[in-house]
């Protein structure tokens, strides 16, 4: 087996193992949490018999290991159980919201990633001159302001005053792509401002690090212009750290948009999770936790795989 295949297989296996461990932590965590689901469903006036019956029905009395295994195998087959509070099938309820969250994250990434990399390249090209300083200052400011504040400020000026985009990001399946994009334009703008600084600064740092190399001098002495040097010679060697920070931010776009979804009343997973945490609906919390963990681990795994593949020493062994 070539070393690169072995490395990739190891990395993927590691991710699966990590996901398994996380599933244990999520399950154990929700068990040790205080509170009684049966009590919260039936309310204070429930009779002891009714509580006992419900607990038996929910399987709360079974040994935890047995419940964990049953839950895990169910989850692997797409069965995330039923929500205690509404009796709905969780997988069904989650699927449309999950796609909504991915939809928002995807379009935010489409805007933010190329913009961040372009600004990073621009900052390197004009290092320590005014474009670099302006980019750094603006992106730093935007990451420092809490995202809900940016959200409300944009909503006030762009939605209320200028009336360019709607203030509430309601989407449903009957809308065309253009209508949907129009609806989520503001959340995309806010998310972009939040993740831009991190990615742009990492791009700048990674490329500047590479710019110290002797082969950059070789490229300059070939008479290439500054953008050719950066784009052709520096960027390919800075891919690994850049992809790493991009993936971290994509993960944030999926799992960290709770606040934005609440601000813009967007029907995504974050809002669903928040609702059910307050109702102490354990199966829903577990299911959301597992999906978020899978997204996080999966994106980081992709970052590592890209880093491995971008290394010519591994791709083309001697």
């Amino acid at each position: 087996m070539s070393p690169i295949v072995k490395l990739l297989a190891q990395r993927i296996a590691l991710s699966l193992l990590l996901l398994l461990l996380i599933s244990i932590v999520i399950f154990a965590g929700t068990i040790v949490l205080p509170g009684d689901v049966a009590q919260s469903i039936l309310g204070q006036s429930a009779t002891p018999e009714a509580l006992a019956n419900l607990r038996a029905e929910l399987g709360v009395n079974d040994p935890p290991v047995e419940r964990y295994i049953a839950w895990l195998f169910g989850a692997m087959q797409g069965d995330l159980g039923t929500a205690l509070t509404s009796g709905q099938d969780i997988a069904q309820a989650l699927s449309s919201r999950f796609w909504n969250t991915l939809f928002l994250a995807f379009w935010a990434a489409v805007v933010a990633v190329p913009l961040a990399i372009f600004l990073g390249l621009l900052a390197v090209r004009f290092k320590d001159r005014w474009p670099d300083k302006t980019i750094s200052a603006v992106t730093l400011a935007s990451i420092s302001i809490p995202e809900f504040l940016i959200g409300y400020v944009l909503m006030y000026f762009i939605a209320v005053q200028l009336r360019w985009f709607p203030s509430v990001a309601m989407v449903n399946d009957n809308m065309s792509l253009f209508e949907k994009l129009n609806a989520i334009a503001l959340p995309i703008a806010v998310l972009t401002l939040v993740v831009l600084a991190h990615m742009m600064r990492m791009t700048r740092a990674a490329i500047l690090n590479v710019m110290q190399s002797a082969y950059i001098e070789t490229a300059e002495l070939k008479g290439l212009n500054a953008f050719q040097v950066i784009y052709r010679h520096a960027f390919p060697n800075a891919i690994a750290p850049i992809v790493n920070v991009v993936m971290l931010n994509l993960a944030y776009l999926v799992v960290g948009v709770v606040v934005i979804e609440v601000v813009f009343v967007y029907p995504g997973m974050g809002q669903y999770l928040v609702d059910h945490v307050s109702k102490r609906d354990v199966p829903v919390v577990q299911a959301c936790g597992l999906i978020f963990a899978a997204v996080y681990i999966g994106l980081n795994m992709i970052a590592d795989i890209v880093a491995i593949l971008s290394n010519p020493r591994l791709r083309h062994p001697k």
């Binding site: 190399s213 002797a214 082969y215 070789t218 060697n237």
Partner: peptide
């Protein structure tokens, strides 16, 4: 005018 450096190993771009 062209240039040959002391360390070719460092002066070639490893990614190309």
């Amino acid at each position: 005018v062209t240039y040959v450096s002391q360390s070719a190993a460092a002066s070639f771009n490893p990614a190309k």
